[in-house]
């Protein structure tokens, strides 16, 4: 049930993002009329209202979905790839390599992520989308590698791994065929949950002013636009804020549902 709801929401979000140019009533950066259309509350003409620059919020939120979701999906893909590779290597090799890698991961997990991200992003003069993906993905793999490593440690001592080796399977084959599928389930769950987390983090960064630069809309910078107006024009921040909430909820539901679906013990 949860998995269906989560999946439906995620698919709807992806569809909205994909078809944003068709669905949005106005260009997202168009300043419609700086004299009369600033901070207009939600109405038929502007269902989400307009922002201080007289831009249509519905259009901005729809277009913001493209950027926010793209960043989140790619960052998670990067984190999962790196985390799985490092976890596999660490768990399979064992010994010194394992110790060194896992202590690095411990160090990475010990420092608050927002702090690392802020420090690294400060090095860029202008934050680009690629930089944002690289840094969000590059700091997101620690937890993944930990879990993958634990699964690999458990799987490498299974009898079927010994049986495969006894019949002449190469180490590479054993890892890819017999060990990797074991880690797939937890990794898929982490990835699904992770997308929501990254959307949230991206919004937080934009709010702090280190996100995607204006006038490109992202949910984070829409919220940032509205932060001074929470009492006078609350719809500005609320529009993108709701989008973030729905997205996080959708991916959490999907992740939770997948966990139940993939784990035979809870079936």
């Amino acid at each position: 049930m949860r998995i269906r709801l989560g999946l439906a929401l995620v698919l709807a979000l992806v569809a909205l993002a994909l078809f944003a140019p068709l669905l949005a009533p106005y260009p997202p950066a168009a300043q419609l009329d700086l004299e009369t259309l600033r901070n207009v509350p939600p109405s038929v003409a502007h269902p989400f209202g307009t922002d201080p620059y007289s831009r249509d919020l519905l259009s901005r939120v729809l277009h913001g979905a493209r950027l926010s979701l793209t960043i989140a999906l790619l960052a998670v893909a990067l984190a999962v790839t790196v985390g799985t590779a490092i976890g596999l290597a660490s768990g399979w090799a064992g010994g010194l390599a394992d110790t060194v890698l896992m202590r690095l991961v411990d160090a990475g997990l010990a420092v608050p992520k927002i702090f690392i991200v802020l420090v690294v992003l400060a090095l860029w003069e202008k934050v680009t989308v690629v930089a944002l993906i690289a840094i969000l993905g590059g700091t997101g793999w620690f937890g993944v590698s930990r879990i993958v490593r634990a699964e690999v440690r458990a799987a490498r001592d299974r009898e079927y791994v010994a049986a495969a080796r006894a019949l002449g399977a190469s180490a590479r084959r054993v890892v890819l065929r017999h060990v990797l599928p074991n880690v797939a389930a937890p990794v898929i769950v982490i990835a699904a949950m992770g997308v929501g987390q990254v959307v949230l983090l991206e919004a937080g960064l934009a709010y702090l002013g280190v996100g995607v630069p204006q006038p490109t809309p992202s949910w984070g910078n829409i919220i940032a636009d509205g932060q001074h107006l929470l009492l006078t024009a609350p719809w500005v921040a609320t529009s993108a804020g709701l989008a973030v909430v729905v997205t996080v909820l959708a991916f959490s539901l999907l992740g939770d549902g997948l966990r139940e679906h993939l784990d035979p013990r809870t079936r």
Binding site: R158, E159, Y160, A162, A163, A164, R165, A166, L167, G168, A169, S170, R177, H178, P181, N182
Partner: peptide, 22 residues
């Protein structure tokens, strides 16, 4: 690797755990 399986093969004790469940 070539000897294992083609020259000498081994059958293990536990048929329940010697096959990969997935």
């Amino acid at each position: 690797r070539r000897v294992r399986g083609a020259g000498m093969a081994m059958v293990f004790q536990e048929p329940m755990t010697s096959l990969n469940p997935v």
